[in-house]
Nucleic acid binder design. Structure first.
Length: 357
DNA sequence: TCTGGGGTCCTAGGACCC
DNA sequence: TCTGGGGTCCTAGGACCC
């Protein structure tokens, strides 16, 4: 155990998808850009994936229905999600970031945690290093990012979000609690809409409110999560920066352009999704034991239905057959289907599987 | 407002085994 | 012949992340 205090970076690319689109299309610069579903003159289905700061001026936000974005800003440039393009930019950026850290953890497509404790002597040197990272990404990728520096992942993550875009925020351990106190609880990792509402009902709105709350009551109300909430509110987080392990599940799902009562359409799409899942599974040389399907009706009611085999397999025929059988149980003549999906999990590597047979 | 898609982790009940 | 307790796996649902 080293006694040295940790110094952690959280690097967050600024409005990543739209920033990449602007880089590829310089004529987009300065105009509102929205990446997401096809708005179809306001009749489109789906949501905004990312929007640039010009679009945010109109009230557009990520996660918002694309139809609403259209009403707020019909003049924006609407682009479909070009995942391959962003993935390529992402892997180049991650390659750069990895070189700056002893421990590295990618977080989603455009964020990463870096443990740089052994690379610097103090926060001043850390700040210099952060500027170097920002310069290199700008020079090589023509993209900006925001960096948060803190004593742990939690504080670093919230710090990176504090000044955006192109920001750099340093929060030392001794200032962490004070820094967090006025912020809304929603800024904490793992506090989403539901937990925010529950906390609000208890009179807890800011992270400071949470820090002053009775830890025992929090533990009783939220279980394991309650203790975690209390520690986080005090700026404490002991989780390590660590490389992601192997993937645990692979899935595809699709929302139909129009809800459908035609079972054949549902099965056709399901087969297609199964083929895509299978392609990914094969590429990674895996065998799966569990198949789970998902069905969403027109009223948004959603069900999942799974089956675990007594053996692992990598055969497309099995996948399609099991998926069809599972979905069959949920299809109802009196209800239109909005979405169908398929997922495989419980992996065994193909090599290990071979040894067993 | 009428709600995507790809993931991870947690919980709770039930089956099954010793 | 009225019924324990621990461990593990499976299933379904849900919260959360980007």
């Amino acid at each position: 155990m080293s006694g040295k205090k940790r110094i952690i970076f959280h690097v967050d690319m600024d409005h990543f998808f739209t920033a990449v689109e602007e880089r590829e299309h310089p004529e987009f610069k300065g105009k509102p850009v929205v990446v997401g579903a096809d708005p179809k003159e306001g009749k489109g289905r789906g949501v905004v994936s990312t929007c640039n700061y010009e679009a945010r001026e109109f009230g557009v936000e990520s996660g918002m229905p694309i139809s609403r974005a259209w009403k707020l800003c019909p003049e924006a440039i609407y682009q479909p999600v070009n995942y391959e393009l962003y993935a390529k930019a992402s892997s180049e950026i991650m390659g750069i970031l990895r070189r700056y850290a002893d421990k590295f953890e990618q977080w989603g497509i455009d964020e990463a945690f870096l443990d740089i404790t052994l690379r610097v002597d103090d926060y001043d040197e850390a700040e210099i290093l952060a500027h170097e990272i920002k310069r290199e990404i700008l020079k090589n990728e023509k993209l900006t990012c925001s960096i948060g520096i803190g004593p742990n992942k939690l504080v670093a993550k919230i710090a990176s979000d504090f000044q955006k875009p192109d920001g750099l925020t340093v929060v030392k351990e001794e200032n962490a609690e004070k820094f967090l106190a006025p912020l809304p609880v929603r800024k904490l990792l793992w506090v989403g809409r539901k937990t925010e509402q529950k906390l609000k009902g208890m009179g807890i709105k800011t992270i400071g409110d949470l820090a002053n709350y009775d830890a025992t009551v929090l533990a009783e109300t939220f279980g394991v999560m309650g203790t975690q909430l209390y520690l986080m509110a005090h700026g404490m987080d002991r989780s390590e920066v660590e490389e992601r392990g192997e993937v645990k599940s692979i899935s595809r799902e699709l929302t139909f352009e129009e809800d459908t009562a035609d079972f054949e359409i549902v099965f056709d799409i399901l087969d297609k999704l199964s083929r895509e899942v299978h392609r990914d599974v094969a590429k990674q040389n895996l065998c799966f034991k569990t198949v789970t399907v998902k069905v969403r009706y027109e009223n948004f009611e959603t069900h999942t239905h799974g089956k675990t085999l007594p053996f692992a397999t990598d055969r497309l025929q099995y996948l399609q057959k099991i998926a069809r059988k599972l979905v069959q149980d949920w299809l109802r003549p009196d209800r239109k289907t909005r979405l169908v999906g398929v997922r495989v999990s419980n992996f065994v590597s193909a090599e290990k599987q071979k040894k067993l047979t």
